[in-house]
């Protein structure tokens, strides 16, 4: 759980960093370049498979853990401890993870499918743009198009909020699971964890919002 979670966190950093190039406001040139760069490098293609595997392991482990733990109580209490002992999001990691899973399916369908599988069978390939005589997938144009739908924007923002809460618990929990017990390190990690969860999720949430509002073109 902790190792896969940590890997997924490191993926988020790279993903957020690259996507931030949409704000270069150059009609998506820098963004399309970096997406192409990532898509054409063999190391990254291998990492993509590793990433898929880590996602799947994390999800399976998560559900196995959750269902095992849920079965341990037997008869429940009439009155629960609820928020008096723990944060609601710490107790709902499975549910937040499920929201993330639903989000992930929608997200992959939006961008990964046309970009990687476009042209196979009935799947529409992406339009191409020309930079210096070379053709690139215009993933940026696709983003702008998809984020014109307000419902999609709302679903993405909900996904980002789930991510923020999942990470507010997950970030610190990972390090505790891995055995960090020095109080000074831990208090630092907890602060970094909250900041990371909020900043990363806010950066992601701003992408569909700024495209919908026409801040980037």
């Amino acid at each position: 759980m902790a190792l896969t979670g940590l890997f997924l966190i490191s993926f988020l950093v790279i993903h957020a960093g690259l996507n931030a190039t949409i704000w270069a406001n150059d009609g998506g040139e820098m963004f399309n370049f970096s997406a192409h760069f990532m898509g054409s490098m063999i190391v990254i293609r291998i990492m993509e498979i590793v990433l898929f595997i880590f996602f799947i392991i994390h999800i399976i482990q998560g559900y196995v853990l959750e269902s095992k733990n849920l079965s341990r109580r037997g008869k429940g209490y009439k009155i629960n401890l609820a928020n008096r002992g723990s944060k609601w999001y710490s107790r709902t990691m499975g549910l937040l993870g499920t929201l993330l899973l639903l989000f992930l399916v929608m997200h992959l369908y939006h961008f990964w499918t046309p970009s990687r599988l476009g042209g196979i069978g009935d799947i529409q390939p992406l339009n191409e743009v020309d930079y210096d005589g070379k053709g690139y997938h215009n993933l940026f144009e696709e983003m702008v198009r998809i984020f014109q739908n307000p419902l999609v924007v709302i679903l993405y923002v909900v996904g980002c909020i789930s991510l923020a809460y999942h990470l507010m618990h997950g970030f610190q929990s990972t390090f505790r699971t891995l055995g960090v017990h020095n109080k000074r390190y831990l208090s630092g990690l907890i602060i970094v964890g909250y900041a990371f969860a909020i900043i990363i999720s806010a950066v992601f949430a701003m992408m569909p919002i700024s495209m919908y509002l026409g801040w980037v073109k």
Binding site: N69, L81, S86, R91, S173
Partner: peptide, 15 residues
């Protein structure tokens, strides 16, 4: 013994 696994919710420490 059939106890569950720790997910660091912190309820134990609180009580």
């Amino acid at each position: 013994e059939g106890f569950g696994s720790c997910t660091f919710t912190g309820a134990c420490e609180a009580v």
